[in-house]
Amino acid sequence: MSESHSKIITNIKAELGSRLTIMGHHYQNDHVIQHCDLRGDSLELARKVPGLKSEYIVFCGVSFMAETAAMLASDQQKVILPAPEAGCVMSDMAPWALLDAVMRKLTADGRRVTPLAYVNTEAAIKSVVANYGGSVCTSANAETMLKWAREQGDGVLFLPDANLGMNTANRLGIPESKWARLDVSGMAKNLNPEDLADKEMLLWPGLCVIHKRFKAEQIDEIRHRDPDALVVVHPECHPDVVAKADADGSTSFIIKYVEEAPPGAAIYIGTEINLVERLAKQYRNEKLVRPLYPSRCLNMAKTTEEVLAATLQDLDGIDAVTVPGDVAHKATVAIERMLDICS
């Protein structure tokens, strides 16, 4: 990236000082992440927002993350997403109106189904979840939140990532005979609650396109080539991939796993390539860090150093990330419920 872009960012940060906080998700590229005051996964960054005093919060990530930040920030703070078009394919797989239609069907006979939404969803989804007494989760706390959701009724609707739902169910020992992947096509016209009466884990048919690219065969090939290699993957991967890996966990877990691996270890990572490449650089003289398969998030890539520089040059002219009041209130209930449970 241009040196001038980096200089612009550095100068504006120095000028604004504590009035500005730049937050960045681990999947941002190095040219952007180097300028971030705070970096982390979804849970880490959400936890930090309420404690910020900055007038401007610039969130380098995707839209649902900036929405969460906007809901947790004060009225005096302005949350800005440098690339407003940076969405999330997984989030788009669960439109709020469809979720509401599904929940109305599932609870029509009085059954108490608790929706648990992955944080990778828009605010409107979180609002619907709150309406039905549910909450949200991240990959870091999915196990804790699923335990909680199971205690609230006689069924859990996990959305939108079926892989994370299945992997978490496996961790809690929920047998596959108690799972069901829902048919939500055509506004759930074919969904029959009677067929699901004995199912405890109801799975929305969504996935992360980044982690879909990782296959069990890739791990088999690594095992054949280097039997001593370690493999760690994100739980958005298919359960077959997770089963063959040495470990699985959130981005923060993966970072710690690499840190604690013995010197000289060869570690293959199944998650977004920016994080893998950053870890490879960090440990290049100590350990061999490689991607299980190079998989890049194009939405995360929409925030470039040039885009960040242009954003900082026009902080007062750019529209803040906003969420309609009624949606924000209910969605915040779902988010704060998670934060309270996981505090």
Results as ranks from 00 to 15, higher is better:
194 E>R: 12
177 S>K: 09
208 C>V: 11
172 L>D: 02
190 N>L: 12
156 V>P: 02
151 E>S: 09
198 D>C: 07
161 D>T: 07
145 M>N: 09
229 A>E: 05
139 S>Q: 11
142 A>S: 15
222 I>F: 02
191 L>V: 06
140 A>T: 15
184 V>M: 03
226 D>S: 07
143 E>K: 15
144 T>M: 13
229 A>R: 03
223 R>C: 09
135 S>V: 01
130 A>W: 07
180 A>W: 04
136 V>A: 14
217 E>D: 13
155 G>C: 06
207 L>W: 11
186 G>F: 02
159 L>H: 09
134 G>F: 04
182 L>I: 02
218 Q>G: 10
152 Q>S: 11
135 S>P: 07
132 Y>G: 01
218 Q>P: 02
196 L>V: 14
154 D>V: 08
130 A>S: 13
215 K>N: 10
221 E>Q: 14
133 G>E: 07
176 E>D: 12
178 K>V: 06
143 E>C: 01
217 E>L: 03
171 R>N: 01
140 A>F: 08
229 A>F: 05
200 E>Y: 00
214 F>Q: 05
154 D>Q: 13
209 V>P: 01
180 A>K: 00
166 M>K: 15
160 P>M: 01
187 M>E: 12
140 A>P: 07
191 L>I: 08
176 E>I: 04
156 V>I: 15
187 M>F: 00
195 D>P: 02
213 R>P: 02
177 S>F: 02
228 D>M: 02
185 S>P: 03
138 T>M: 09
149 A>C: 04
192 N>H: 11
159 L>I: 12
228 D>V: 05
131 N>L: 00
226 D>A: 09
171 R>D: 05
190 N>A: 11
173 G>N: 09
148 W>S: 09
181 R>M: 07
152 Q>R: 14
143 E>W: 00
211 H>G: 10
136 V>K: 05
149 A>T: 10
188 A>E: 12
212 K>I: 04
139 S>A: 14
137 C>D: 06
137 C>E: 03
153 G>N: 08
200 E>S: 03
188 A>Q: 14
202 L>M: 02
192 N>M: 05
148 W>I: 14
132 Y>F: 13
228 D>T: 06
190 N>F: 09
129 V>D: 07
134 G>L: 11
186 G>D: 11
178 K>E: 15
180 A>F: 05
220 D>E: 13
180 A>S: 03
192 N>C: 15
187 M>N: 11
196 L>S: 12
189 K>D: 08
167 N>Q: 08
149 A>F: 00
224 H>N: 10
182 L>A: 00
222 I>Q: 07
178 K>Q: 15
151 E>L: 03
181 R>Y: 05
130 A>Q: 05
160 P>Q: 09
200 E>L: 11
161 D>S: 09
136 V>C: 11
190 N>T: 15
181 R>D: 02
170 N>P: 02
225 R>N: 13
169 A>Q: 00
193 P>Q: 07
129 V>L: 03
225 R>Y: 02
